[in-house]
Design a protein around this nucleic acid. Structure first.
Ligand SMILES: [Zn+2]
Ligand SMILES: [Zn+2]
Ligand SMILES: [Zn+2]
Ligand SMILES: [Zn+2]
Lengths: 144, 144
DNA sequence: CGTGTAAATGTTATATTATTACACATATAG
DNA sequence: CTATATGTGTAATAATATAACATTTACACG
């Protein structure tokens, strides 16, 4: 697949015209079911001419800024956004299965309200919020 | 301060008899106002004979397991628990000021309930939950 | 008290994740 | 066309974390 993203299975949001490297990184992440580390992305793109981590990290910085890729802090890994709304600056939450490595993204609106209520009381002004659940997904629970 | 923790300013919980290295690491973290990286802890303990990162990481693993130290995933750093309850396996949340580096720990009971409700619906069994707010604290807002 | 076992420690080397620094190329606006 | 901002290439290095293996200590049990 080239960097025009035609036929991407992911929501188009309003993609801000990705550059060549940004497009390559986004394609690789979108084609992957689960999260990938920056170095896994690098390896996947060596055939496209990538040679240094910085090529990946710079693209990831932008994609995260655009809201179409998320960083999973507890994994030091990245995942393509799997639902609309994130580009509108909503906080996303992630359920990460420790058995199969799968990641399920959801929008924790109520939880965010509760955290915002705490922040209001504490005089804390949040700029971004990380919510990550580690555990076992439904399929892996069933397969136990 | 030696490793007996007499006079520690932190709640005693029910400390499970820390070993020498665990005690040293806990003392260093407790004496620090904010979070510390593993390597900062290592440097602080070179005078006590520490020479390798593993001495710190092994102690941290146990202290986190005991619930008296928390890992801040978005900082790759560690902080001594600043309130009781964590040893009872409650989920802690952290408000991290990007201006001054200060960390405020709190117990997000309502938010955890909301997340648990989502998990129940999704058939996801969480084992541990990360909640970290990045932003600006009250003092730094005022000093703006 | 011995003795077996689990836990903790010491040490070296290595793996993984991320950034700094600097040169060069490309896009876009005026 | 230029000025400026943004993106890219590349090498070197920093920061974070783990693997592997030998040795020591804690402590339950006979
Ligand atoms: Zn998203
Ligand atoms: Zn699973
Ligand atoms: Zn705590
Ligand atoms: Zn502050």
């Amino acid at each position: 697949m080239n960097s025009t993203h035609v036929g991407s299975s992911h929501p188009a949001h309003d993609l801000p015209k990705l550059t060549k490297n940004q497009g390559l990184v986004f394609d690789v992440l979108s084609a992957e079911a689960g999260p990938m580390t920056a170095y896994a992305i690098l390896d996947a793109l060596r055939s496209e001419g990538f040679k240094a981590p910085l090529q990946v990290y710079r693209a990831l910085d932008k994609l995260v800024e655009f809201g179409i890729v998320h960083r999973l802090e507890s994994l030091n890994a990245f995942v393509a956004c799997s639902h609309p709304g994130c580009a509108q600056n909503e906080t996303a939450a992630f359920a990460i299965c420790e058995r199969c490595g799968g990641v399920n993204e959801f929008t924790p609106e109520k939880a965010v309200e509760c955290l915002q209520a705490w922040a209001d009381g504490a005089g804390f002004a949040p700029s971004r919020t990380t919510i990550e659940l580690r555990g076992t997904c439904r399929d892996c629970m069933a397969a136990a």
